[in-house]
Amino acid sequence: MTRRGQLWGGVWLVLHGFICAPAWAETAEALLGRMMTSARQLDYEGVFVYQRGDSIHTMRVVHRGSGPTEQEKLVSLTGPVREVIRDGSKVICKFADRDAVLVEEQQPRNPMNFNIAGPLETLAALYRLEIEGGDRVAGRATQVVHVAPVTPDRYGYRLWIDEETGLLLKSTVLDNEQRSLEQEQFAEVTVGISLPDERFHSELSDDHQVHYTHEANAIGAAQKGAAGPAQDWTVSWLPAGFEQHHDQSRATGASQQPVRHFVYSDGLATVSVFIEKLRKDMAPMHGYSLVGAVNAFSWVAHEHQVTVVGEVPKATVRRIAGSVAPQTTE
């Protein structure tokens, strides 16, 4: 090949790269932005595997984001028969086994609450975002984004994002030693298909227990102290970048008295602080518990049960819990 031929060959390769692999040109932030939009707006169905610790579960998901409301049906394919159907803020959970979750009405999710620009700007200061390169998941080309925390008080993530659609096809929650705590991965997925309403109907008979159904209002303004513990409370320590998003008092199914609930987030990790007056018939809790990458720490402070739950390391939930105290008036 002549020198001119080599030159044009090189130019063609560069142009071909830009044309055929637009993801290469995307920054990690742009990919994450696309991922956020896709997760709610795309129509797709697929089968994925959810793994935490030694346990592996297979589930089928059907999702429609093109309709008037976001709809999703999640069905377990292994283990006990379970089904969760979401339609906007309405959620119905059906379980065939008694050994299941959700015994109470929950607060609604409010998709409009999520500010796409805000978290990404904040994330850059708190996490190192890096595109690690390409990989294949469920037969589709993905870009792998590694989200590494700057400080060890929160977890990292590795995200496999579909190059074509931006859909998250695989995700791993990583501890500070880069060990996987929890993982979700599509085995097969079809994106952009027409999904009729029937696909979102329940596959389970009415004999199955309906543990939970609600159609609640959007989360309103904080009902600070409205009916919660008499004292006001402060959380004096939080990891850098965590901001308060909610402060509510409400009764729960497990406790008929109001429970104060603070919610903090850095845009990627979330921490909840629950404060509840200890009654004589309540057995106080003290110590850690764990589900997947979610840690909880409970203790008793000033005759109140304080529990911190978060997708952060156990040392972080413990330190936050230790900083919860009644507000003192000067």
């Binding site: 956020m36 346990s55 999703e72 999520f114 978290p119 995200l159 929650v173 929890e182 979330t270």
Partner: peptide, 17 residues
Amino acid sequence: SLTLPKLHPYVRIVGFH
């Protein structure tokens, strides 16, 4: 409702065993 979608909502609940 607050963070980047990293896992499907309710996956921990359906996948609980």
